[in-house]
Write a protein that binds this DNA or RNA. Structure first.
Length: 501
RNA sequence: GGGUCGGUAGCUCAGUCGGUAGAGCAGCGGACUUUUAAUCCGUUGGUCCCGAGUUCGAAUCUCGGCCGACCCA
């Protein structure tokens, strides 16, 4: 509990519609039956439509089907002594036919004052209307929850973008597409779990509160542990803990959970986001690329029943083998005029980056080539493409290539111009890792806020021996964006970060 | 950080030349026993984002600020 003074309830916006509904609630309370919780719901709208939607009116009349449903009133059409009400439950919508004759005068009169948004329970028998719509002829009708706030315009719905994210509950009530996106997200995550478990990976949970942030180049959120009186960080990546588990003998592990990075908001960035990271002993970055390809195809198949689909109006095909290009090959793919000699010339590359309108961060040739790639090629990689041969200086946790000590056995996967995954053969040489950490510490001292800390316990773990291992992280939010055709990360996160109201 | 567009009733939006606020939906009252965004009649409801300025007069023009969307970096 907080030790600050208790605060008054924050002032909510009120208006005459809310006042009217509060009055109705007050009258309902007078009856002593407000907010009941004993209604027995036996059926859902979707299932009833599925099972009885095709039955003829005569059949439903000859053998009456008793049902009980509950849900939120979405539409209400009162016509004298008979009315139609459309209610919505998690499975869909169904129409109720409510008559004074069948529910009685008292209930019918009360019902006429119920509002769109109220949650009701109804019992009755199935019927077909004149137009053949499956409906429920209601014989018992109860108000279960009074809704005090009016829902958005029943025709236009909720279109205010800000409201949609701030009041996701309203968005979910009003928009089928939103409900679909988040049920799809659940299916995608489930399919990934199934795939991992099916391939013998163990799902684990590692700390989110880190004494030393590590595993990625990013600014962490900081917090404080009172009892231990120590500074702590919300994790920016689970990587170093997962590799400790591989040291411990859990040779195939994965974790699906949140990372936190203290960075700006954008259509592709939320300060907390979900990653799936996995590590496999005796695998290398090449086998990880194959595995990642299979995983993404599986997720697409499970959630969309297809490996080819449209993203933002343009076709995306996950069924074909993903492209594999080095950083320089990717640059040259979109700029065939650029020669190998030019790419090997640091001064030339710097000029080219500036010509693309980007600021150049100081670094070695590999880093400069990477910056040029980011400036002129990355966004154009629509089809799934693994970019390989990342320079050592930007890959402090990756194993060096045996062929070229300046590059690592690392890849990043790009789809529709966005980074989706990042993986590499892990650096399991404790002494090399210690040296790389020292380089990072030097960079941090020189002002690089995203440089890594020296993690002595991680070095100690490596000193016990990490088998040759491959590891990869997949951005779940961005994957869900792809598979649900969502343009912004906020569309696939239920409660995205917003500026306070 | 820069640019563009926007902020008016609970929701979706109009608002002319600067002349004192409008529609549909929702709400309220009434009619209506097969509606489908039901319909029909009547009716309530406004910090026109905030502040300053210009003006006899500002939702409207000017400046500053806040918030949002999109684009650029």
């Amino acid at each position: 509990m907080s030790n600050t003074e208790p605060q008054a309830a924050p002032q909510q916006d009120e208006n005459h519609i809310i006042a009217e509904r509060r009055q109705k609630l007050a009258e309902w309370r007078q009856t002593g039956a407000a907010f009941p919780n004993d209604f027995q719901r036996q059926n859902t709208a979707g299932k009833l439509l599925e099972v009885y939607g095709d039955k003829a009116a005569e059949v439903l009349e000859a053998t009456p089907v008793e049902v009980s449903v509950a849900g939120r009133i979405m539409l209400k059409r009162v016509m004298g002594k008979a009315s139609f009400v459309t209610i919505q439950d998690l499975s869909g919508r169904i129409q109720l036919y409510v008559t004074k004759e069948h529910v009685g005068e008292e209930v019918y009169t009360a019902f006429k004052h119920w509002d769109i948004g109220d949650i009701v329970g109804a019992i009755g028998t199935l019927m077909k209307t004149r137009t053949g719509e499956l409906s429920i002829k209601v014989t018992g009708f109860r108000l279960l929850t009074k809704s005090l706030r009016p829902l958005p315009d029943k025709f236009h719905g909720l279109t205010g973008v800000e409201l949609k994210y701030r009041q996701r509950y309203v968005d979910l009530i009003m928009n089928e597409e939103t409900r679909f996106t988040f049920t799809a997200r659940s299916r995608i995550v489930q399919s990934i779990r199934n795939y991992m478990c099916h391939h013998g990976f163990l799902e684990v949970e590692t700390p989110m509160l880190h004494p030393i942030p590590g595993g990625a180049a990013a600014k962490p959120f900081t917090t404080h542990h009172n009892a231990l009186d120590m500074k702590m960080y919300l994790r920016i990546a689970p990587e170093l803990y997962l590799k400790r588990l591989v040291v411990g003998g859990f040779e195939k592990v994965f974790e699906v959970n949140r990372n936190f990075r203290n960075e700006g908001l954008s259509p592709r960035h939320n300060p907390e986001f979900t990653m799936m990271e996995f590590y496999e002993a005796y695998a290398d970055y090449k086998s990880l690329m194959d595995f990642t390809e299979g995983l993404l195809r599986h997720a697409a198949r499970e959630s969309l029943n297809a490996e080819t689909f449209d993203y933002q109006g343009r076709e995306l095909d996950l069924s074909k083998p993903f492209h594999r290009l080095s950083i320089c090959q990717a640059i040259q793919k979109y700029h065939p005029d650029i020669t190998d000699a030019q790419l090997a010339d640091g001064d030339w590359v710097v000029q080219k980056i500036e010509a693309c309108g980007e600021k150049v961060k100081p670094g070695g040739l590999g880093s400069l080539q990477l910056q040029l790639f980011e400036a002129c090629a990355e966004a154009r990689l629509w089809e799934p493409t693994f970019i390989i041969d990342y320079p050592v200086e930007v890959s402090p946790l990756a194993r060096k290539s045996d062929k070229n000590p300046d590059i690592t056995e690392r890849f990043e996967l790009f789809i529709v111009g966005r980074e989706i995954a990042n993986g590499f053969s892990e650096l399991n040489d404790a002494e090399d890792q210690a040296a790389r950490f020292l380089e990072q510490v030097k960079a941090k001292d020189a002002g690089d806020e995203e440089a890594m800390y020296y993690d002595a316990d991680y070095i100690r773990a490596l000193e016990y021996g990490l088998p040759p291992t491959g590891g990869c992280g997949i951005g779940i939010d961005r994957l869900v964006m792809l598979l649900t055709d969502s343009p912004a990360i906020r569309d696939v996160i239920l409660f995205p970060q917003m500026r306070p109201e």
